[in-house]
Design a protein around this nucleic acid. Structure first.
Length: 373
DNA sequence: CAACCGTGGTG
DNA sequence: TCACCAAGGTT
């Protein structure tokens, strides 16, 4: 074999760990330096952090920990309480899997999380990334946790030309070779901290990076071109109508969506189907009950992962004693904040009713939202 | 394996 | 306004 190119120096995990020891972020679920984290808290945080930012997770995590302090408490809680605590965080199948996983840990593992990657992988809601992250962070197993941050860091350091997601296996093996024997958990968190604070998607702060020297993308000035990705297309706009019914006893008509699929198991005011060619003027024909419907001006817009949605809101007042249609129920307006309402449906209710009384639960204790609306 | 599955922040 | 993205998993 000939000598490799002289510039191809291997990134040193110890350089990264030294940087981490000085710059690690303080996070509610993270143990102090030198201490081992609680597996329940690590697992809970990792599930919440799937495709979700640290800032968004923090208040939900603290609220969850207060309501469900242990895996036994979570396993023993009713599903509705779990869904309600998750409402607003998104990707609601995570909440169902979270609950199922807690039950499995209690029933099949005596309340103790398994410590190895293959065992963790068998649990619901735990995939390749989360199994490795929990094994490394909570149990100090030598596992390679590869998330979006790690993919970006490794793509740049090794200048991976193949686009994601095809390059996932390559990146996984590159990462695995770098995981140190002694501090695998710190290494995993160090790469993620690096990706979150230095090796950012745009304008990375390469001058501050402990891996600037071995970074091949940086060497050519092309760091912002990596990782290469296949672009995904967003679906066409869908339209529909939502029906907000206020009964004279100050209750609102709600229903629960089917357990699986979009917004599975979440609550909502009844709506029409959502179709690309839905015609709002026909909305009154789709109404759940007979009433004097008022079509409210404006629309509610919401963007899901794979399509945007535009809802026309119809409003009606009905007499006390009006029965709820099949599979629907009346909820006191003052108790709406106890319902598992996803963001899109909160928008609908606000559009029709104004601010939901007491609707802020845990998600409003974060800094710097803007002024009132 | 590509499609499905939320939401909020950012440039 | 808009495209992109964030500690991914399931089917």
């Amino acid at each position: 074999m000939l000598t490799p190119a002289p510039s191809a120096t291997k990134p040193d995990p110890q350089d990264l760990l030294a940087w981490y020891d000085r710059h690690r972020r303080e996070l509610p679920w993270r143990a102090r330096a030198g201490e081992t984290a609680d597996p329940y808290r690590v697992w809970l945080s990792e599930i919440m952090l799937q495709q979700t930012t640290v800032a968004a997770v923090k208040p939900f995590y603290l609220n969850f920990l207060e309501r469900f302090p242990t895996v036994e408490a979570l396993a023993g809680a009713p599903a509705e309480a779990v869904m309600q605590a998750w409402a607003g965080l998104g990707y609601y199948s995570r909440a169902r899997n979270l609950h199922a996983c807690a039950k499995a840990v209690v029933d099949r593992h005596g309340g103790e999380f398994p410590s190895t990657e293959p065992e963790l992988l068998k649990l619901p809601g735990i995939g390749a990334y989360t199994a490795a992250a929990v094994a490394a962070i909570a149990f100090n197993e030598r596992a390679a946790a590869v998330d979006g941050n790690v993919e970006r860091v490794m793509s740049r350091v090794f200048m991976v030309e193949e686009p994601l997601p095809k390059s996932k296996p390559l990146i996984r093996s590159l990462t695995a070779e770098l995981v140190p024997e002694d501090r695998p958990g710190d290494f995993a968190q160090a790469v993620m901290d690096l990706g979150a604070t230095i090796c950012t998607p745009k304008r990375p702060a390469c001058a501050l990076c402990p891996w600037m020297r071995p970074c091949q993308a940086r060497a050519t000035g092309l760091q912002e071109m990596f990782p290469k990705k296949q672009k995904k297309e967003t679906g066409p706009l869908r339209r529909g109508a939502a029906f907000v019914v206020l009964r004279a006893d100050d209750t609102i008509l709600l229903r629960t969506r089917p357990p699986a699929g979009l917004l599975g198991g979440m609550a909502e005011p009844p709506t029409s189907d959502w179709l690309p060619d839905y015609e709002p003027s026909r909305a009154v024909l789709d109404a759940p009950i007979e009433a004097r419907w008022q079509r409210l001006p404006g629309t509610v817009r919401h963007v899901f992962t794979h399509f945007p949605l535009e809802l026309t809101v119809l409003f009606a007042k009905v007499a006390k004693g009006t029965p709820a249609p099949h599979d629907m129920r009346w909820t006191p307006r003052l108790h709406l904040h106890e319902e598992a309402l996803p963001g899109a449906m909160k928008k609908v209710l606000v559009h029709a009713l104004g601010d939901l009384p007491g609707a802020k639960k845990a998600s409003d204790k974060q800094p710097a939202k803007g002024a009132a609306k």
